[in-house]
Structure formats: structure tokens, C-alpha cells
Design a protein around this nucleic acid. Structure first.
Lengths: 282, 282
DNA sequence: CAAAGTCCTGAATCATATG
DNA sequence: ACATATGATTCAGGACTTT
């Protein structure tokens, strides 16, 4: 079902055909330059959030269990500058890979989304909206020293100010927000339960797996059937899975072996009708 | 009732006493360096958003009226770079003027808030939260080419990562969001009706007047009675008016004469109990 | 006077066709 | 490249007018 492309130094350049509906196993920084110009109709990027969590573990008060935060190598950067460099490098390549009327979505929290937004503007991207994902089941802030952060922000943009005629399916967008208008606020639970992938030990496989219902909204609103959706930092591949469920093509890049394996497994098992996980009922 | 301080070149330095509960009529860039270190317990900044609206007017099709967008000199900048310089200059001075455990709020939309957030991080500010203001009566996007932008974002931060013991009144914060937790999402209407200031011709005096209910939330949650709230870009003075209503002190700077006059008038007329405009009922 | 209907407008980076 | 004309007509809330 799913195509696997193992990146290597011998490969100088990819054709669209060779990566269509494929997971490319490799480092995005190395793979991106090999992808063709104007390949993608839409790009979804879920970059590391650079959370800068303290080393000491957070203990739940009552049950005395440790909160499993994000403690992956891929979320560690030496400084804001090195984080910015990572983002800039990817965004520049992505811009080249976007079709003229393609749009791009970047998701993040207050830790990183503002950096990304400013860097996008500096690179010439023209922001169309930010969309607020209100998580209906966010983890409370027990210490009461700040608000419970229940939101993530998606920035939606085109390549530059002059772009017209990008895809925006307004009728569909109206379904996903409260009220009659297509408002830039979405209420959705975070990914838990059966949808959440586990490793051999029953631990969550990926710390920030995005819900399929979120990608459904992104893809339905900003692409047409047959379009190519590109995700250069695929993780466990929610983008590609949802794209296929909705009759779109995907191209994904992922570096970590266990995530690539998860992508392939999901692509062979989860290509179903969206009915089970969609959430567009008002 | 309200103190007016007219800034001039002869004034080299202000004492706290000389500006307490005063509107300083002058250019923030000139006044800020004259204000004392560690004066403020909390800072609220509502900077120009740099909207970059097109020159052509937007016409309502049926009623043939023009949408009165923001077309003020103070929202015009030559480039992102010059906008950034304006923000950086103000933020640096503000940081000096903040007490060690003070907090700062900056409000904006996707046009500018990401720039501000990144610049704040680069200046060492440590973001505690972003708070999403969901506007219940935002203007629709009736051409259906993007989402109706119904939100503004408030970034809430301390001077640096090490700051502890800042004021966060969690009990009050819980009242302002849905559910039992103090969530970072506030639903509030934009400022219209009787609260909205008009000029002699019945036109809105300020294009972006903030509702008192918004400032009430900010001030109640992040200050104590008797604290000094500082607003270097005061506009029509909502910050000071609400501060006085809630038994806090204020210091405000405003450049434009008609806004200063509005501040003084409001400070002499609107210092009432908050009951009339507050909106903390669940 | 109350109720119902009309009109106006809000931090907006809102489109397309023709000349 | 500009300027100008035309058009597919959304929602909430307050002010005002009519019934």
C-alpha cells in the first residue's frame, strides 16, 4: 500500500512520481533539497516546539505518577538561534517546493509559534489566518501560577502577498467552527484513546501525536481531491493517513526509524472512511 | 481627578510620585527613558498592529457603505524592520521600568503578534501564557477567501525565566473562562455601543478602542490593589480608567492630543464600580 | 409603551473584470 | 502597470424607526 523511500547520498534528485504517496526515511534537512520545485499543493508542518522543559520531573500530586512530558532529542536545541536556523532552512526549501497557489500550515504553542510566525513573515510568506485549536481536554495547571494552556495555534499562509486563487473551501470551514461563520477557532480533543499509538511497553509512541480530526479539517478546507499534501516532519504520519482517507496524495519525510515504521503500519491499516474519527457535527 | 503631565525637553527625569495616576502627554519614545527603574507592577501594551490594509476601500455590496478600516498614521510603518525597531525600543525601556516580579501583557493579531512574541523572547522576556480573546461579534469575511478572524492574542510574560512570585489570581482567572479551570481562552464582545467613544461627528474616536471588560480581566488577574499599572501607548485610556475603578494606580503615556483629552475626560467621568461593564458571569 | 423591523458597523492584511 | 466598476451578500449587537 504505502511506498517507502530510503534516502541515501547516492540519490541526487527525486521526481514527483518517485515520492508520491511515499514516506521518505531520512533527515528533512538532507531530503528537502532533492525534492522538485512546485510539487506540493499544501504543506503541513508540525515542528519541534522547543519546550525548554526543566530537567526536574513534574509529579502529579494525588497519584504520585510522573508526567511524561516531551523529552525527545528532536526537541532539544542549543539556543533560540539554532532553533531559528532549523526553521528557516526548512521553510526556505518548503517555499520552493510549494506550487504557486499552494498554502502552508504551521502548528505550535506559545513556546515556538511566534518565532515561526515572524520567521515566516521575514521569508515573505503572507499570513492568511491563524487558527486557534482549543483543546477540550488539556492538562490542567495544578500549581495555579499561570493559565492552563489549552490552545495551539496554526498559522495558515501563502508564499507571498500577491497569491490569489488558493483553495479555501468555505462551506466546509463553516461546519467546523461554532456559529454560522467560518471562524478561526476550532474545538477538538487531543489525541487519546484508541487513536493514540503505543509502543511495545504500552507507552505513547510519540509525545505530540496530532488527532486525525485536526488534519481532516486542514486538508478538507485547503485542498481538493487529488492534490499533493506535503509534510516534511511527519512523525507518526497523521498527515498522510488522513490525506489518503480523503483521496489526496501525500509526500512525507521522517528521520526516526520507529516513526517511519508507524507511518507504514498506519498507512496499511487506517485508510478508512473518515466517519469514525471526524468531528464536524454541530 | 486625573493628573496631566505635559512632557517637554526640559524634564530630564520623572519621579514615581510625579507621574502616579497621570497621563503623560508626549511621545513614548521620548518619555520612556525618563521614567524610573522598577516603577511598574504590571504593564499593558496595545501597540499598532501594522495591518497593511490595501489602499482600495472595501465596499459593502448591498448597503454601498465603505468599511472604515484602520487608516491612522500611527499604524503605518515603512517595513517590518522599522516596525520591529519601534517595538524593540519600547520593550527594552519597559523592561527596565518593570519591577522584578512585574508581568507584561502585549495584545495583537496575526499581523503583528508573532513579531512581538519573538522579539520579546529575544529580549529575554519569559512567556507565561498566551491568552486568546475570542471576539463574539467580529466582522465576517464575506468574500469567503479565508476564515473570519475572530481572535486577538495576548502574550503574558515576566522579565526573564528566573522570575517567581509574580501575581496570578487563579481564583479570579477561573471565573473568566469556561469550565472549572483557568483556561487561556476568553470570550468577549468588541467595544461597541455606549462604551465606544465618538468624536464630534459621531464617528468612532479611536479605531481600536479596547473594551473595559478585557482590561478588567487583565488587571484583576495579574495585579493587587494599590499596584501600579503602566501603559506606554494609552490611546483613549481604557487601562487607566479600569485600573482606577479597581483601586489600582496607573501611569499612561499618549502622544495624540485628542486621545489625551479623551483619557482625562474618561478619568473624570468613568470611575465607577465595574458592575456595569464587567462580564464574569458564567 | 412594547414589540418588531430596519439600519449601521466592527484592528480586514477579503475578488474579479474591464479599460 | 494602474484605476474603476461590479458583485457572489456573512454575523452580532446596538441604535433607531415603525407598527
Amino acid at each position: 500500500m504505502a511506498n517507502l523511500v530510503i534516502d541515501s547520498r547516492e540519490i541526487p534528485q527525486y521526481s514527483v512520481e518517485s515520492v508520491l504517496d511515499a514516506v521518505i526515511w531520512g533527515d528533512a534537512l538532507e531530503v528537502l533539497p532533492k525534492l522538485p520545485d512546485e510539487m506540493a499543493d499544501m504543506v503541513f508542518i508540525d515542528p519541534p516546539y522547543f519546550l525548554q522543559l526543566p530537567q526536574k520531573r513534574l509529579l502529579r500530586w494525588k497519584v504520585k505518577t510522573i508526567v511524561e512530558g516531551v523529552d525527545e532529542d528532536w526537541d532539544k536545541f542549543e539556543s533560540f538561534e539554532s532553533y531559528d536556523q532549523f526553521i528557516i532552512t526548512i521553510l526556505k526549501e518548503v517555499k520552493r517546493i510549494m506550487k504557486a497557489r499552494a498554502t502552508i500550515w504551521c502548528i505550535g504553542t506559545y513556546h515556538n509559534i511566534h518565532r515561526i510566525g515572524k520567521l515566516m513573515q521575514d521569508l515573505g510568506f503572507w499570513i492568511l489566518n491563524d487558527v486557534i485549536w482549543v483543546k477540550t481536554n488539556a492538562m490542567p495547571n495544578w500549581l495555579n501560577v499561570r493559565f492552563t494552556n489549552a490552545t495551539e495555534t496554526l498559522i495558515w499562509a501563502v508564499k507571498d502577498k500577491s497569491v490569489k486563487g488558493y483553495t479555501f473551501n468555505a462551506e466546509i470551514a463553516r461546519r467546523f467552527s461554532k456559529g454560522k461563520l467560518a471562524i478561526n477557532v476550532w474545538e477538538l480533543p487531543i489525541c487519546i484513546g484508541e487513536e493514540r499509538l503505543k509502543d511495545g511497553q504500552g507507552k505513547k509512541l510519540h509525545p505530540t501525536q496530532k488527532p486525525k480530526a485536526l488534519l481532516e479539517r486542514v486538508i478538507l478546507i485547503s485542498t481538493k481531491e487529488g492534490d499533493i499534501v506535503f509534510d516534511p516532519l511527519a512523525g507518526t504520519g497523521t498527515t498522510g493517513v488522513v490525506a489518503k482517507c480523503l483521496n489526496r496524495h501525500f509526500v512525507m519525510i521522517e528521520k526516526r526509524q520507529e516513526y517511519v515504521e508507524a507511518c507504514l503500519k498506519r498507512l496499511s491499516q487506517e485508510i478508512t472512511q473518515p466517519a469514525l474519527w471526524r468531528s464536524d457535527e454541530k
